[in-house]
């Protein structure tokens, strides 16, 4: 058994109550959604909150709704529900595809979209037991002062390993947070920050309540994930692509690559494409650019040379699929 550290559990019945609780309990409290990330991490001694605030009773945060020009997905919607939602599959295909390949079936049934977006970054020197990390001498992100991935590194570069993050960014989604100061909306691209020790812009006391995905005509999106096994594994690399078309020709393209470091990376080359380029969509050029722009780090288990090579392949496959759909 891996005993959990001791804590008190709170189960607020509304978002307001949850926010009030967080304010009262302070930084010693952590939110619990599906628990599929928080609990294994706590069992490995990575977090030891004195208070755990369970969001289980917040039924209002469950479900996929259409609100005007947006798809609003409650934070407590399970990944299974996101993956199975007809609306999501139609208007936010990359997100539905990403949700469908998280972990194994049980994780998707338990795990929530909110929990996935707020997933702790992962690193092979971090996601280990207390004994193991102790034997290593700990690291910057937790209890230590050195990084084992980047020698002499002063900043943690643990990998964003949440499958939905890249999709949310590519789809230009908005993260909705509720805190003591009210509601705050952040583009997904700004929600994730390049610090492996804390890779979201969520402030102390805030609750992620929903993800708003704009619904646009002529939009297609896809998600590609690299992993060794057909299930369970976190991404070794992931690519989300959004392609917007108008009158049969491409108007905008976004390629987001993740599981590299703490923040999913928007492919600059894709953003710079002019109208003429968009019309032809030079897949190989983009894939080569991705290879130049992305450098997987030896932060997660798996052959880093291979992961690097796969940047090109995955980007190519994602773009190929997106264009075939469009």
């Amino acid at each position: 058994m891996l005993p959990l550290p001791e804590f008190t559990v709170h189960t607020p019945a509304s978002v307001d109550e949850a926010v009030a609780l967080l304010a009262k309990l302070g930084p010693g409290a952590m939110l619990l959604a599906g628990g599929t990330d928080l609990l294994p991490n706590m069992k490995q001694g990575l977090h030891a909150p004195a208070h755990v605030v369970s969001l289980q009773r917040l039924g209002a945060l469950r479900g996929v709704r259409r609100e005007g020009d947006a798809l609003v997905i409650g934070a407590m919607t399970t990944l299974d529900a996101v993956a199975g939602s007809a609306e999501a599959k139609t208007h936010a295909a990359a997100l539905a595809e990403a949700a469908a390949v998280v972990g194994g079936p049980q994780h998707r049934r338990m795990g929530t979209l909110g929990g996935n977006l707020c997933l702790d970054t992962r690193c092979r020197y971090y996601n280990q037991t207390a004994f193991w990390r102790g034997a290593l001498g700990y690291c910057l992100k937790k209890d230590g002062d050195t990084c084992h991935v980047v020698e002499g590194g002063r900043k943690c570069v643990a990998a964003a390993s949440n499958d939905t993050a890249a999709a949310a960014i590519a789809l230009e989604a908005t993260v909705v947070l509720t805190g003591p100061a009210g509601i705050r909306r952040l583009p997904a691209a700004d929600f994730f920050v390049a610090d492996g020790a804390r890779n979201t812009a969520r402030r102390e006391g805030e609750l992620l309540t929903a993800l708003e995905v704009p619904v646009r005509a002529g939009r297609v999106s896809v998600y590609e994930k690299l992993r060794r096994r057909g299930a369970i594994d976190f991404p070794l690399l992931s690519v989300a692509v959004r392609l917007d078309r108008e009158d049969g020709s491409a108007r905008a393209l976004d390629v987001v690559i993740s599981a590299l470091a703490a923040k999913p990376r928007r492919l600059a080359a894709a953003q710079k494409l002019g109208a003429a380029d968009l019309a032809t969509l030079p897949i190989d050029t983009l894939a080569d650019a991705a290879l130049r722009e992305c450098n997987p780090l030896p932060n997660i288990e798996g052959d880093v040379v291979w992961r690097k090579q796969m940047v090109r392949v995955l980007v190519k496959r994602a773009l190929g699929r997106a264009t075939s759909l469009a």
């Binding site: 619990l32 369970s54 994780h107 049934r109 338990m110």
Partner: peptide, 13 residues
């Protein structure tokens, strides 16, 4: 009715 992992489910929930 849903298959879940008992080792990642807090009993109190």
């Amino acid at each position: 009715g849903e298959p879940v992992l008992a080792c990642l489910t807090l009993a109190v929930t």
